[in-house]
Design a binder for these strands. Structure first.
Lengths: 99, 99
DNA sequence: GACTTATATCGGTTTTTGCCGATATCATCA
DNA sequence: TGATGATATCGGCAAAAACCGATATAAGTC
């Protein structure tokens, strides 16, 4: 059940916050000066804002990714994460009809 | 955060199944002969189908109820649970705009 | 009131999740 | 190639969730 994995990923306060931040990265991460936001936001910026350790935030991001809610792009030494809006649209439909 | 409670309630295979069964109680619970389904399905029937203990199923149903996903009606010695479709509609909208 | 049936609640044990620090990997740059 | 910075992964501990059996409560029957 893919849905189960998605709901588990959404069952954590910090992970929900990360998803919200990624919704409007320009406002949520004004310190990410370089490179714009076409690839999303890098782990370090998210970690700063979350106030948890690097390892925890990295793990949370891969949980979100395995659930399909975000995608990642490696650029040099940085990994950028961004929301996968399609997944949210699908999820909304799943809830309307399949749950 | 109410959403968090909802997602936690949905983060369990059995609870997801129960919600699915309650979507079409006539088909899912053909043994509930008495009283029709206007109040939903009683705990005992759900327990039988879930194959878990009575206490576990009772707890699961109250988790779903606290999250607002089902409502309960006591009729005599039985407690009937049914889906709260409005909650699912709201959740679908929350995912479209608030997550 | 004593007995039965349906459900809820209370302790427990095991598994999973939420974090952490330490270490490994990967890319960059001198 | 050696040092540095960014991220991933690994091992652990504490808290929460997933169950269970036993017991309590509520309703119905005699």
């Amino acid at each position: 059940m893919k849905q189960l994995e998605i709901f588990k990923a959404l069952s954590n306060k910090t992970r929900l916050e990360i998803l919200l931040w990624l919704k409007d990265p320009e406002t949520s991460f004004p310190d990410q000066i370089y490179s714009g936001f076409e690839f999303g936001v890098c782990v370090g910026q998210i970690q700063l804002k979350a106030g948890l350790t690097q390892s925890t935030v990295s793990e949370y991001l891969s949980i979100l990714q395995r659930a399909g809610l975000v995608t990642s792009t490696r650029v040099g030494q940085w990994t950028y994460y961004k929301r996968n809006e399609e997944a949210f649209n699908e999820l909304s439909k799943i809830i309307e009809s399949d749950i």
